[in-house]
Lab assay of single mutants.
Amino acid sequence: SPEEIKAKALDLLNKKLHRANKFGQDQADIDSLQRQINRVEKFGVDLNSKLAEELGLV
C-alpha cells in the first residue's frame, strides 16, 4: 500500500541521514537527504525514482 511504501522510504532515508551526520558527509548531501524526506512526507514515493529502485519496488 502507499502508506507502507512511504513508511519504508522514510525509514531508509532517515537511516541515510543519520549515517551522513555520524560520518560527517558534505552539508550538501545532508541537505539533499532532508529534501528527499520532506518530498516523501508530502507526496509519497514516485515509482519511477531511484528511491523506488532502492526499495525494490521497480
Rank of each mutant, 00 (worst) to 15 (best):
S1Y: 10
S1L: 09
P2F: 14
P2T: 11
E3T: 07
E3H: 07
E3A: 11
E4L: 09
E4T: 11
K6G: 02
K6Y: 04
A7S: 09
K8P: 00
K8I: 10
A9R: 00
A9F: 05
L10R: 02
L10C: 02
D11L: 12
D11G: 05
D11H: 10
L12T: 04
L12S: 03
L13N: 00
L13K: 00
L13H: 00
N14I: 14
N14K: 15
N14D: 03
N14T: 12
K15T: 07
K15S: 10
K15E: 10
K16Q: 08
L17T: 01
L17S: 00
L17C: 02
L17G: 00
H18C: 14
R19P: 01
R19Q: 12
R19D: 12
A20L: 11
A20P: 02
A20G: 03
A20Q: 04
N21E: 11
N21S: 12
K22G: 05
K22V: 13
F23C: 12
F23K: 06
F23D: 11
G24R: 07
Q25D: 08
D26K: 12
D26P: 15
D26C: 13
Q27N: 07
A28V: 09
D29F: 15
D29E: 15
D29C: 15
I30C: 03
D31N: 08
L33R: 00
Q34C: 09
Q34I: 15
Q34Y: 11
R35N: 10
R35M: 12
R35L: 12
R35F: 08
Q36I: 12
Q36W: 11
Q36L: 15
Q36F: 07
N38C: 14
R39F: 15
R39V: 10
V40K: 00
V40Q: 00
E41D: 05
K42N: 08
K42T: 08
F43E: 08
G44W: 01
V45T: 02
V45H: 01
V45K: 00
V45E: 01
D46E: 09
D46V: 06
L47M: 13
N48G: 10
N48P: 04
N48I: 04
S49C: 04
K50M: 10
K50F: 09
A52I: 05
A52W: 10
A52S: 04
E53C: 12
E53W: 15
E53V: 14
E53Q: 13
E54T: 06
E54N: 04
E54W: 14
E54Y: 08
L55N: 01
L55E: 01
L55Q: 01
L55H: 01
G56M: 07
L57P: 02
L57C: 05
L57Q: 03
L57K: 03
V58P: 07
V58E: 07
V58Y: 11
